[in-house]
Nucleic acid binder design. Structure first.
Lengths: 197, 197
DNA sequence: ACCTGAACACCGTTCAAGT
DNA sequence: ACCTGAACACCGTTCAAGT
């Protein structure tokens, strides 16, 4: 045990963890590299090794957010014992809960700034959309649209989920309505157990 | 004509206009009260009369954005000569175009920060959602859900539109897919001309 | 390889003072 | 009523220097 120990050990993860907490408490406006450095007990120049610019920290947070959400959603599927409909509902709830509980992070993940930006964020986002797309595909019928394009139906249902999640997150939908809306979406999109008919 | 004229005339609108332009060019990060004051040719303290804090400027921009979007959407309906289906498609396109063309403003309008916040933003947002809700209601069948709750179907379709718009805006959906997705949504939600069956 | 500490330019916010 | 200009605390970013 040392009083003033280190090269700190793992400054990057320490900063990321503190940033995540600050994001929850104070939003993006509350995030400051200098403040995080102060909390971590290093000089204000130290974070530069790991995050040369503030945007790099935001990118890392967004990528981490996508990975967390992907893991949560995969976990929900595994808990559903092959019941695709139950899996869909659980996934929808997780998605929406995430948007509400980590609203500032959600903003970062889907902000326009990150649209043309960091490859690590794009990769994590791709993983998430591939994952949730697969979950939705397993549950969506091939025949709901005239020419039976399942991919389009899948994109549409993901869009609906995302719309519900972001509207609840920004306070435009009441949280009490959400379960009903997800159920309605299930009915409308013909969500059901089993693969194509 | 005077060289160094004024009390400036209308600093508030001048600042708002410049802020809107900056938002399009450089995003929210590019917005600075001091920079706007410089561009308007006033001292850095002058904006304080109209926007005591930076957030007040952001709120004004968001409220203005909602009002613009509402006006655009109403205009599209009026151009559709009572054809509710055509109106719906035009409205959907306007919504999505807005999200793409004014992505930074869209972020401001639907950001979490504004969820519990400024009453003027909430009022403008309410006007928008009331308007678009009415348009959607006119086009949505009462019988698509088992117990025929039209309001829920309306909220669901608005959520879908919002999801498509934000996903395109953040680059997660290809703009080329959008028209097809809107058409698919029309089919799925049973969008049609005339009122309840 | 990782961190320190001074330096620079910029910012939001406050406030006494001008017209 | 509206604006100026100095002041304060804070920030991101850069960089030479330390261990």
């Amino acid at each position: 045990m040392q009083a003033k120990p280190f090269h700190h050990g793992n400054l990057r993860d320490d900063l990321l963890g503190r940033a995540r907490a600050t994001l929850r408490e104070s939003g993006e406006d509350g995030l400051s590299l200098r403040q995080l450095a102060r909390e971590a007990g290093v000089s204000h120049g130290a974070p530069r090794r790991h995050f040369p610019e503030r945007q790099h920290l935001l990118d890392a947070l967004a990528a981490q957010g996508f990975d967390e959400l992907t893991a949560t959603v995969v976990d929900q599927v595994e808990r559903s014992d092959g019941d695709a409909v139950a899996a869909f509902r659980a996934v929808a709830r997780s998605y929406i809960d995430f948007a509400v509980d980590d609203a500032a992070l959600m903003d970062l993940m889907f902000s326009t700034k990150n649209s043309g930006a960091a490859p690590q964020v794009a990769a994590a986002a791709d993983r998430f959309f591939t994952t949730i797309g697969g979950i939705v595909r397993a549950v969506v019928p091939a025949s709901a649209l005239p020419d039976g394009d399942t991919l389009r139906l899948q994109l549409l249902l993901v869009s609906t989920l995302h719309g519900i999640a972001t509207l609840v997150g920004s306070g435009r939908l009441d949280a009490a309505q959400v379960d009903q809306l997800v159920d309605d979406a299930s009915v409308l999109f013909g969500v059901r157990t089993g693969a194509d008919p």
